[in-house]
């Protein structure tokens, strides 16, 4: 069982959690979903998280992404115990260290593709700093979107774009501030196979090029094979770990 003594995170871990439990109040009882998870994500590592639906993958990802607080246990991001920090510092960690790609893209409908992609920079910077850094970020986002084949879609609203296009914008958004960690929860789960493959190529290319640590939830065995490490989750526990990292 993996819920024994918390382990010390290894020094090159960019993201780790120890003894993470999560339960939800359901009626007057608490429903335990995660039963003590220890996990480490090393810099540049590509990790796949698999498991049946309802196993608790999304719950774990939300905790690792600092969106949700574990009922027990701790999460360490870039060497900092995230829940010991102030809400503001934690928000900054989310902003600078973690990129999210969601199953349902989650773009802001009122913003154009380009604006969605530079949103993290707007959140990060104060008004003055943004004004001076604006064009640099705009260029960066434009470059990325162009590379993703969206050069003629920059001014479009999400509602005018296909799912694949929206997900590519979401990837650009997640990578804008060059975070060391990328968290993707079934990024192709909502796309048809061909489109999904195209999006995945982009995601994996960018990941290896930038050396971002990627934590990816997927149901696709073939995709999992392309990852250095695969974790299998069941009933709130990590049951199997394709442990020994593949030689690089």
């Amino acid at each position: 069982m993996s819920d024994l003594a918390p382990i010390q995170p290894s020094p090159d871990a960019v993201l780790s959690c120890t003894g993470v439990r999560r339960s939800f109040p359901v009626g007057d009882r608490r429903l335990a979903i995660l039963h003590g998870i220890n996990l480490e994500l090393c810099a540049g590592e590509r990790l796949a998280l698999m498991g049946t639906s309802g196993a608790g993958k999304t719950t774990l990802l939300n905790i690792l992404g600092l969106l949700d607080r574990p009922t027990e246990g701790s999460v360490t991001v870039a060497g900092m115990d995230a829940w010991a920090l102030s809400a503001r510092r934690r928000a900054n960690l989310r902003n600078e260290k973690i990129g999210f790609v969601f199953q349902f893209y989650h773009l802001l409908p009122e913003l154009s593709a380009l604006e969605n992609a530079v949103l993290p920079a707007m959140i990060k910077l104060s008004r003055g700093a943004y004004r001076s850094g604006r064009s640099a970020f705009m260029d960066r986002a434009t470059d990325m979107l162009t590379r993703f084949g969206l050069a003629d879609r920059l001014g479009h609203r999400p509602s005018q774009l296909s799912g694949g296009e929206q997900q590519r914008i979401a990837i650009a958004r997640a990578l804008l501030l060059d975070p060391p960690i990328l968290i993707a929860d079934e990024p192709t789960g909502n796309l048809d196979r061909a489109t999904g493959e195209r999006v995945l190529e982009i995601l994996l290319d960018e990941q290896s090029e930038r050396g971002v640590a990627l934590m990816l939830v997927t149901h696709d065995e073939r995709l999992a094979k392309r990852c250095e490490r695969v974790l299998y989750m069941e009933d709130g526990l990590i049951q199997a770990d394709s442990s020994a990292p593949m030689p690089t």
Binding site: G65, A91, N92, I123
Partner: peptide
């Protein structure tokens, strides 16, 4: 609601 969740995920503080 969803937009607010997205903003949080991207690093907006509650105060923001």
């Amino acid at each position: 609601r969803r937009d607010i969740g997205i903003l949080c995920a991207l690093g907006a503080t509650p105060r923001g």
